[in-house]
Simulated assay, not measured.
Amino acid sequence: MLLDQPVQFTQTAKDNLRLIAFPEPFLRVGMRGGTCGGTYVLGFDSKTENDEEYLIEEIPVIIDRRQLLFVLGTEISYEAQGNGFFLHKPVKK
């Protein structure tokens, strides 16, 4: 079963992504290095056989099926004064 929106974008992130000419057809969201000490991955890429494809608010996103549970619920924001794009999981209350 495919999810409608496994990740979400803040308005600022959406606005900035729409300004970028994607060098590859998709925005890849994923994890590198495992679940405990892993880091998020955000970049441009082509789809592979292990990827699920989503169109999230007009942004073409791919996520490797093996990483989907780890990135599920991730919010992607953009900080103009900081490091640019930032990925985090909001704490549920």
Rank of each mutant, 00 (worst) to 15 (best):
H88D: 03
P60F: 01
F22T: 05
P90F: 01
E58D: 15
P23R: 04
F86R: 15
E79M: 06
P90H: 02
T10M: 00
V91M: 12
A80Q: 12
N16L: 04
R18K: 15
V41W: 03
G84N: 03
H88M: 04
F22C: 05
T35I: 14
R18S: 13
V61G: 01
E52Y: 13
Y54I: 04
T39M: 14
Q11S: 15
P25L: 08
T12W: 00
F26R: 09
S77A: 13
K47M: 07
I63P: 00
R32K: 12
Y54T: 04
S46Y: 07
D4W: 02
T12S: 15
V91W: 11
F22H: 12
H88A: 08
T35M: 12
S77T: 14
K89P: 04
R28M: 11
L68P: 02
R32Y: 14
G84K: 06
G73P: 09
L72W: 07
V71T: 04
F9E: 03
L17R: 10
F70R: 14
L2A: 09
V71Q: 02
R32S: 14
I62D: 04
I63T: 03
Y40H: 07
Q11P: 02
F70W: 10
V61T: 03
L19F: 02
F70G: 14
V61K: 00
G73V: 09
V7Y: 03
E79R: 10
S77N: 02
L17V: 12
G34T: 05
G34L: 08
F44S: 06
E57K: 08
F9K: 02
A13K: 09
D64R: 09
D51I: 01
G73W: 07
L27M: 12
Q11Y: 11
K93M: 08
F86I: 14
K47D: 00
V91Q: 13
E24V: 00
I76G: 07
T74L: 06
N16M: 14
F70V: 05
I63C: 00
G38S: 02
K47R: 14
E49F: 03
F85W: 07
L69T: 07
F26T: 09
G43M: 03
L72P: 05
A21F: 04
Q8G: 08
F26N: 13
G82E: 13
E58M: 09
I63R: 00
Q8Y: 06
I56W: 08
L19G: 00
Q8D: 08
F22N: 10
T74V: 13
L17W: 14
S46W: 00
L27Y: 06
G34E: 09
L42P: 11
Q11C: 05
A13N: 05
I56D: 09
D15Q: 15
M1G: 12
H88N: 06
I62T: 09
G43Q: 06
L17A: 10
R66A: 12
F86M: 14
P23N: 07
E79T: 00
A13S: 08
K47F: 01
L69F: 07
G37K: 06
L68V: 08
E24I: 00
D64V: 03
R65L: 12
K93Y: 11
V7A: 03
T12V: 13
K89E: 03
E52V: 09
H88G: 06
Q67H: 12
T48V: 03
L27A: 08
E52N: 15
D51Q: 01
K93Q: 10
V61F: 01
A80F: 05
G30N: 10
P90Q: 06
Q8T: 15
